[in-house]
Simulated assay, not measured.
Amino acid sequence: MNHDRYDNAYIADILKTTGTIALLGASPNPDRPSNRVMGFLLSKGYTVFPVNPGQAGKQILGQTVYKALADVPQPVDMVDVFRAAEYLDGVVDEALALDNPPKAIWGQLGVRDDKAAAKAEAVGIKVVMDRCPAIEYPRLAV
């Protein structure tokens, strides 16, 4: 898939069919984009599992933080990645190692790795990169 642009229906379908999200790189700092996006997603009714090894066992926006994707207590529909692009390939590997891989992997603004995306897409996982669901959701009136 070409990740230079996305069809609106492709992104809207991911947002409409997602109920649970693992947010990698979640921050307890309200000034950080990951914290604001997590709050937005929670406000829209998504179940969000924050993942951050340095915050594991603590709470962010009332949600328990997990050390790694594999520690999230239930399958997730989407993995939202707030980590540098160089880590996206490793995130895809972590997602593929799960008993129930996510239906989508979403790389936040600035997070793009076409080879990692191709690896995920090869097994049927949808990928969005260099986009923010908190921008796309209202833009597409999901």
Rank of each mutant, 00 (worst) to 15 (best):
D80Q: 04
I21G: 08
V91D: 02
V48E: 01
T64M: 08
D13E: 14
G25S: 06
F49E: 09
D7W: 10
K44Q: 13
T18E: 11
I14T: 09
T18N: 08
G57N: 04
T64P: 02
A70S: 15
G62T: 03
P50C: 03
Y6H: 01
A68F: 12
L61D: 05
G90C: 01
I11Y: 01
N29T: 10
V91W: 00
V79Y: 06
T17E: 14
N52T: 01
Y6D: 06
Y10M: 04
L42I: 14
Q59H: 14
Q55Y: 08
E86K: 12
G19T: 15
N35I: 06
Q74G: 06
L23D: 01
V92T: 03
I21R: 12
Q63I: 10
M78K: 07
T18M: 12
D13A: 14
A22K: 07
G90E: 05
P53F: 04
L15S: 10
Y6F: 11
S43Q: 15
V91G: 01
N35P: 02
R83Q: 07
P53D: 03
G25P: 07
Q59V: 13
V79L: 08
Y46P: 01
V91T: 08
L41R: 02
P75M: 07
G19N: 15
F49S: 01
V81I: 08
A26M: 05
Y46Q: 00
Y46V: 00
K58F: 06
A26E: 01
